[in-house]
Design a protein around this nucleic acid. Structure first.
Lengths: 263, 263
DNA sequence: CGTTATCTTGACCACATTCAACTTGAGTGG
DNA sequence: CCACTCAAGTTGAATGTGGTCAAGATAACG
C-alpha cells in the first residue's frame, strides 16, 4: 500500500504552528510571530494515534508535554486491583501530560478515543520551557489551575450528586467545551462510549443508557448512537442545579453566578 | 500566666523561619541559610485562626499563598444550590491557596478545624515569587502535582469504591500523612467531625459511624470520640485493595460483608 | 453476511441513605 | 455542683436509588 509517499512521514512544512488550525486554542496562542517561529522549532513532529492507542501510560517517565492537535482522548487512573477511573476527556488545543507526580512519572494514562494527533514538547526539567518562553508560564499555570478546578468540581459531582445531575453536568460540560473550540454546542458527536461516560460519572452503563432515553422522552435531547442533539439546555441546567422546574428560576437571585464552576 | 506578654502580639523574632518547628515540611525547606533570611523577610506575620474561621472563601481574590504552620484545616467547594464537598484536609507544612482559577479568584474555601496558624506569602503575580526564589518553583510544582494526583485518586475513590474501601482509604491516607509530619501513624487525633469525614468520602454520617464500629469490632481500630488508634494497618490496606482479608471477617456476623465485593 | 462490540430495556435486589430515637460529651449559667 | 441545652455521635428500621444480571436490539466491521 502507498509505496513511495507513506502518510506516516510528517510533512514539517505543512505542520508549522503558523498554519495550525488549532492555534488560538493552543498554549502558543500568547506568542508573537517571532516567538512562534522559535516555538515551532522545539515542537517535534506530530505524532498520530489510532483509537485505543495510548500516548503514555501511568508509570511512564515524563519527558514531554503534549498538545492535542486534533481528535479527542480520555485520561484515566487505575487502582491496585485494576479498577479504573476516567478522570477527563480532552479535545484539540488541550494540554496533555501535566498530571505528573513526585518521581517524574505520569500518574495517569492517555488513550485516544478516535484518530488523533499531538504535538510533542520535549523538556528535561519543567522550568526549561518556562525560562525559554517566560510568557508560557502564566498560560501553563492557568491551564493547571483550570484542571484542578475541574477535578474539584468532579469530586463534588461524584461525591454528592444523583445520577441525573451527573449526566446533566456531563452534557453541559461537553457542550460548553466543544463550543469553546468553535464546534456546535447543541449538535455533538460523542467520541466516547457509554461505558466511558458511565465510568467517568461513577455510574453503571445501564444507568447512563436509561437516563439518556429519559432525557430524550422529556424532550431535552435526542441521541442516536453517538450523535447527541441538545434541545433544551436550560432544562439540563435546571437538572444540574436541582431546581424543581425551569420556569421560575430567574425570580430567585443567583448571587454568585460569577462564581460558577467550570462547566 | 505570662500576663505581660500577650500572645496575640506576633513576636517576629520568635517566629522566624529559622526556628520554625515545621521548617523541614515547609516550602522553604530547600533554601540555604542566606536564602532563608530573605525568605523570612517576605513572610508576613503569622495569622491565627480559631476553629470554624475561614482563611479565605471561594470568590475571594488571590493575593497570597499560605503555608499552614500549625493546626489543621479543611478545604471545600460549593455548588450553585449550596451543596458542599470537602476536597481535602491539610496539616502543618502544607501549602494552602493554590487552587486558583482563571480570574485569579479562589475556587475553594479554607476553614480551620482547630486553632491554627498560617504564614502568609504575599504576591501580586504568581511568577514574582518564583523569579525571586527560583528554587521554590520546582518545590511548588511538586506540591501542585501532588495535589492533582490526590484529586485524581479521590475521583477513583468517590467514583468506584464501596463505603468500607472509602473509609479504609481515608484512615490510611491520614495515617501516612501524619506520620510524614513526624506524628504517630497509629495514634491519631481526628480534628475533623464525622460529618466532615462523611462529606469528604461522599457518604452519610451514619454510614461512617457504622463502619467505624464495624472496623472496631473486627479488631482493626479503636475509636473513642476523636481519638483513633490503628491496630492492624494491613487489614485496612486489604480492605482498601479489596483483597480477601487474612482476618476472618465472617466471624462477626454480617455474612453478606464478603459478598458485596465487586468482581 | 455473519460476527462482534455497543447499546438498550426489563426484572430483581443490595448497599447505602433516610428517618427517627437515643446516648454521650461539652459548654453555660444558676 | 448540678441542671440544662445543644452539638456530635451511635444505632435500628424502613425506603429507594442505582447496580447487577440477563436478554434482546442495533450498529459496526471484517
Amino acid at each position: 500500500m502507498s509505496a513511495n509517499k507513506p502518510i506516516t512521514v510528517p510533512n514539517k512544512a505543512a505542520n508549522t504552528c503558523k498554519v495550525c488550525h488549532a492555534r488560538e486554542l493552543c498554549l502558543s496562542s500568547c506568542l508573537n510571530e517571532d516567538e512562534l517561529n522559535r516555538f515551532d522549532d522545539i515542537i517535534g513532529d506530530r505524532a498520530s494515534l489510532n483509537r485505543g492507542e495510548c500516548l503514555f501510560m501511568a508509570g511512564n517517565k515524563i519527558k514531554s508535554l503534549f498538545i492535542l492537535h486534533s481528535g479527542s482522548v480520555k485520561t484515566y487512573v487505575e487502582s491496585a486491583d485494576g479498577d479504573m477511573q476516567i478522570t477527563g476527556f480532552h479535545f484539540s488545543g488541550d494540554i496533555i501530560g501535566i498530571h505528573g507526580i513526585e518521581n517524574s512519572m505520569h500518574g495517569d494514562t492517555v488513550e485516544a478515543l478516535e484518530t488523533s494527533s499531538v504535538c510533542e514538547l520535549r523538556f528535561t526539567s519543567l522550568d526549561e520551557i518556562t525560562t525559554v518562553f517566560p510568557k508560557l508560564q502564566d498560560q501553563l499555570m492557568q491551564y493547571i489551575f483550570r484542571e484542578m478546578c475541574h477535578e474539584q468540581t468532579m469530586m463534588l459531582v461524584l461525591g454528592k450528586m444523583s445520577a441525573d445531575r451527573r449526566l446533566a453536568h456531563f452534557i453541559l460540560d461537553i457542550s460548553a467545551r466543544l463550543s469553546e473550540h468553535g464546534l456546535s454546542a447543541t449538535n455533538i458527536n460523542l467520541t466516547m462510549t457509554r461505558h466511558d461516560i458511565a465510568n467517568y460519572l461513577g455510574l453503571a452503563v445501564e444507568t447512563v443508557s436509561r437516563l439518556l432515553t429519559r432525557f430524550q422522552k422529556m424532550g431535552i435531547i435526542t441521541v442516536q448512537r453517538r450523535l447527541l442533539t441538545i434541545f433544551d439546555i436550560d432544562a439540563l441546567q435546571d437538572i444540574y442545579d436541582q431546581n424543581e422546574s425551569h420556569i421560575p428560576k430567574a425570580s430567585i437571585g443567583k448571587l454568585n453566578a460569577a462564581n460558577h464552576m467550570r462547566l
